[in-house]
């Protein structure tokens, strides 16, 4: 782990709320993590945990009525003289020139649904050329050659002809590859992949994960992988952030989070997944109840009503903070964390 080096992207205490008629939804509530070049950060959680809103917040494309209300997102950019400079994305306007120059060029996004993120009426090639020429001063011919090279790089066979095909002419896996090529067209240093393989089959998923890994080896970019699939995270991530109802409950190196998970949520979640190696036909340990709706988020630790180790009078009253429990391993749980003084 080269975590002593400076992170390329650092998120501190990010809070994004949705102001709806029914009330305020705290979609992301104090997310803190770093993304390093050449590494993969996995963000894992179930529906409503805020993992996608985190990605949208970083790109500053949170849809209304959502808004970042607090926190800092800092991106390290290379300046022209080779120096690096920290840019606070939270202080930029959503549509400012600088934000637009970062979106796509420095931080690119790969969506879950490859069909809806590509325009059905333009060829793959034209879409990627358009995106590339938005950020780079290159001629159409140069761009086209670059795109063919890119399509080859992401493993699309016969790239010379694929460049002129429409998204509907490609299969799901190929569309996802095209989408990755689109994201890579401006050579981003951070690639955010939001459930990139959820819509795909197992064997295609394996292909795409393999592709992401080899691209990272070649380009040295940072990948932020957002998924609900613990298996994908275990397979891909170097660092893991586990979220529950907008809050980071545990984060750390992948081996620590999976091997010595500390938070009761992470522990129960991992235990409840049937594994190829677990004993068949026995009752699985489960987490009781269902995920509450963000409108009715429980007070204190949001997990306390479902938590097997709940401390009455503490977990339902106070919100735990992230505390170090090991080498770069943080947990927000009162089991590992001094209980705040009453009344504070």
């Amino acid at each position: 782990m080269q975590n002593d080096s400076q992170p390329i992207l650092s998120v501190r205490n990010l809070k994004t709320n949705f102001f709806t008629d029914e009330g305020v939804v705290r979609a992301v509530d104090g997310a803190t993590f770093d993304v390093h070049l050449g590494q993969t950060l996995g963000i894992v959680g179930e529906s409503g945990c805020g993992k996608s809103v985190t990605a949208l917040s970083i790109l500053r494309i949170v849809p209304r009525p959502g808004r970042i209300v607090d926190g800092e997102i800092t991106l390290r950019r290379e300046t022209e003289n080779g120096q690096s400079q920290d840019v606070a994305l939270t202080s930029l306007g959503e549509n400012s020139r600088e934000m637009r120059s970062i979106r796509g060029a420095e931080i690119a996004l790969v969506f879950q649904e490859p069909m809806t993120s590509l325009s059905p009426v333009h060829t793959i090639g034209n879409q990627i050329i358009g995106a590339a020429r938005l950020h780079r001063q290159i001629s159409k011919q140069e761009a086209r050659e670059m795109v063919i090279e890119l399509l080859g790089l992401v493993g699309i066979p016969r790239a010379e002809s694929a460049v002129d095909s429409y998204p509907m002419q490609l299969s799901g896996g190929m569309r996802q590859r095209a989408l990755i090529a689109l994201a890579l067209s401006c050579d981003p240093r951070v690639l955010i992949a939001d459930e990139p393989t959820t819509a795909l089959d197992v064997t295609t998923q394996a292909q795409i994960l393999d592709l992401l890994r080899s691209l990272q080896d070649q380009k040295g970019m940072a990948i932020m992988l957002i998924t609900h699939n613990m298996g994908v995270i275990a397979e891909m991530a170097d660092q893991v952030v586990v979220m529950y109802l907008g809050r980071v409950v545990e984060e750390g190196p992948v081996n620590a989070v999976f091997g010595e998970s500390k938070h009761p949520y992470t522990q129960s979640l991992l235990r409840s997944i049937p594994s190829i190696h677990s004993t068949p036909k026995v009752q699985l340990p489960t987490i009781t109840g269902t995920i509450p709706h963000p409108y009715n988020r429980p007070a204190g630790c949001p997990f306390h009503p479902r938590c097997p180790d709940v401390i009455p009078g503490v977990c339902d009253k106070h919100e735990p903070e992230l505390h170090t429990v090991g080498d770069e391993h943080l947990v927000s749980c009162f089991l590992y964390h001094p209980v705040p003084e009453a009344g504070s």
Partner: peptide
């Protein structure tokens, strides 16, 4: 191939 493609929730088994 199908069996091999399943990502397992255990980073030690990569």
């Amino acid at each position: 191939a199908l069996l091999s493609a399943v990502p397992l929730p255990d980073p030690t088994l990569r």
